[in-house]
């Protein structure tokens, strides 16, 4: 571009007057930014026009500045202050929602805690209930046993310790009306592993042993009293130690207790 030609075309004067269209003015502005010599030309035109128009003014304008300043509204500053003020509710809003979230979180935590507490208590309750049921069961069993022992129709047969266990003691309670024999083996030693006590009903003349039961639940039974069905015309009761599962005939070497029905 021929800058000198551009400058002398007269377009810059029209630009300063404001006589160009918006598009034309924008073009001049962009050229102004590129060429410092065009800019200084524009500044000189502007200066000449400033002086010319100032010369036309009727009097000094300086003294009017105070009156004008008093009329100035400080909108920009007021807007800033307002925007500052309007921040406060925003912060309050944020703080409130933060607190709400914290509260929500705490409540959720508390809820979880209570839930697990409740679960633990329910577990304990179930445990207690089963303990109570067990105790009731035990009590019923004890009552039954007590009634057995007190019953006058029951024949008590003490079974004394034999050669393998001289200190052993057992007892048989024989209820002939129900054909049941209760065997109390509380004072027998615990059977070794793989062995069980077997109870025999004996007829003496001739000596005929009949198995009336294997005490295979020895360990689990706390009372160590077992109810066995006995329809035999028993004259004596014996307890032998036999391999698990019991034997067909008693192993006499392992006879622990023996007692004769008295009447």
């Amino acid at each position: 571009m021929d800058i000198n030609k551009y400058v002398s075309s007269g377009v810059l004067e029209l630009y300063v007057y404001g006589a160009l269209s918006e598009t034309e003015s924008k073009e001049v502005t962009s050229i102004l930014k590129q060429y410092p010599e065009v800019k200084s030309e524009v500044e000189e035109i502007e200066n000449a026009l400033l002086k010319l128009s100032a010369a036309v003014s009727p009097q000094n304008a300086e003294n009017l500045i105070q009156a004008i300043k008093q009329k100035l509204s400080h909108n920009p500053k007021i807007i800033t202050m307002e925007s500052n003020r309007s921040n406060i509710p925003m912060y309050i809003g944020w703080a409130a929602s933060l607190l709400f979230l914290i509260g929500l979180f705490l409540m959720f935590n508390k809820n979880q805690e209570l839930r697990s507490d409740l679960q633990a208590l329910q577990g304990e309750k179930a445990q207690m209930e089963s303990q109570i049921a067990e105790a009731r069961n035990d009590a019923d069993k004890s009552k039954e046993l007590l009634s057995v022992i007190r019953d006058r129709n029951i024949i008590k047969v003490p079974l004394g310790g034999q050669a393998v266990a001289p200190d052993a003691y057992a007892a048989a309670y024989w209820d002939k009306t129900t054909n049941t024999t209760y065997i109390d083996v509380k004072d027998l030693p615990e059977p070794p592993r793989g062995m069980v006590y077997q109870v025999w009903s004996l007829q003496l003349e001739p000596l005929t042993p009949t198995s009336i039961g294997i005490l295979d639940s020895y360990e689990e039974d706390e009372n160590k009293i077992f109810a066995l069905e006995n329809m035999n015309p028993s004259e004596a009761f014996g307890i032998t130690l036999e391999p698990a599962g019991g034997s067909k005939t008693p192993t006499m070497e392992q006879l622990y207790a023996l007692g004769v029905v008295s009447s």
Partner: peptide
Amino acid sequence: QSGNEKAFERIYELYSQSTYGIIYS
């Protein structure tokens, strides 16, 4: 443009007399 009153005073110094002339004409 950012609302500086000192700048406004300077602008007034620079342009008021000329503006007065335009208005009066």
